[in-house]
Design a protein around this nucleic acid. Structure first.
Lengths: 217, 217
DNA sequence: CAATACATTAACTTATACATTATATTATTT
DNA sequence: AAATAATATAATGTATAAGTTAATGTATTG
């Protein structure tokens, strides 16, 4: 794999894991030394990351991981919601194979189990799996890619607020209802439940960010 | 302005104007010579264009402008539709200032005039203005950027089919009805009309691409 | 004649050196 | 002391050259 590709992935990791904290400026030289490569492949990685909205490069000042405000979060969730609902609509219209339904239901089981054990990390993973499956099943690769991109943008916020949120006991039920509506090929219902699910999720995230003054996360 | 920035914009222009035809492969050296710059800033431009989905770089073969199939078009229009409807919903909920409504109505006048003169280019421009205004007014910068990106992707297809489509006499009416619904703060109606408008537009584009076998445009 | 291994070449990847430019610092002037 | 102009410096932008890799063609062998 090329150095620029590796640089991209490593930086992305570090950003999502909050190793490179938002706000602070990093010069190209610093980052190149950090990764042990020259500035050429580094620069390519930065261009990609900037395109994805994770960072901003200000010439002569360096690049900074973009801090996320509650308003940013609002924007991101609005996009995710609109596109996922489109995906759900498509899926409920065309229907799914039994095996695909099975995969969706499996994530529900995993979520319930994780909640039993109070393992929020595992719960978040299973929740993400459910949404990823929906995106995969809708058949629109570009839509999937776009949502995943914005999903990653919001990663830090979800991570920090996971402990602060009420126990996500309703989510499992929401998912089940969406699956039911898909089974019954009822797009209207599937979309309306899913939309409410996402709107609630986004709103609760934004509320917590404001409440705990986590702005510029 | 930096050479890489200029390279990006020039290449983008050439792609949208069909000067760089889809399918053919261009080596980095060729492109660098074409633009009269070295390969370093060129590469940065290519990374950006690839991220936006306009081109694909295959090492050792060169970059190619990505051909658009009817299926691709379908994907792109699905995303545009979902996000624009979200924008319309937001707008109809919050309402607009008289001046903003005026700007929207102005595009309708321009469309009607252009249609009188059979000036399809001018019509397309005014149509685009209407949609751009909606995106600007919804207040979600990321949503706007995302839609514009996909809008550009579809540019070639619209350009080539402009002459082949039925005269777009219904569009002006659709837009007017959306404006009316926004005035009356009726999100449901605004969205349903706009959705139908976009679905029709996308479907007619896809139909023409298939009909004239313009696949891989 | 076909297949495989080797050699050649061309394109890309990366590093480095150089050019450019913005910012900070310092000196000068009012 | 404050403001401005000149200079220095440091960071980025760009070009080039060296190194690497993959594709193509050729030769050799079965």
């Amino acid at each position: 794999m090329s150095l620029s590709q590796r640089a991209y992935e490593e930086l992305r990791e570090k950003i999502l894991n909050n190793e490179l904290k938002p706000g602070r400026f990093f010069l190209e030289k610093e980052l190149a030394e950090l990764l042990g490569i020259s500035r050429t492949p580094l620069k390519e990685a930065l261009v990609k990351l900037e395109n994805e909205g994770l960072i901003k490069v200000q010439p002569r000042h360096g690049m900074q991981v973009l801090p996320l405000s509650a308003d940013d979060m609002q924007e991101v969730y609005q996009i995710i919601t609109a596109l996922e609902c489109e995906a759900v609509s498509v899926i409920a219209n065309k229907g799914l194979q039994d095996e695909e339904i099975g995969q969706l239901e499996q994530t529900g089981i995993a979520m319930a189990e994780a909640l039993e054990r109070d393992d929020l990390e595992a719960w978040a993973k299973a929740d993400e799996d459910f949404h990823r499956l929906l995106l995969a099943f809708c058949g629109n690769a570009r839509l999937k890619q776009t949502v995943l991109n914005y999903w990653d943008l919001a990663h830090r916020a979800r991570y920090f607020t996971l402990q602060l949120r009420d126990k996500p006991v309703n989510s499992t039920l929401d998912h089940q209802q969406v699956i039911e509506a898909i089974k019954h090929k009822d797009p209207q219902k599937a979309v309306s439940i899913h939309r409410q699910h996402r709107v609630n999720g986004g709103a609760s995230l934004v509320r917590i960010i404001r409440q705990y003054r986590l702005d510029h996360l």
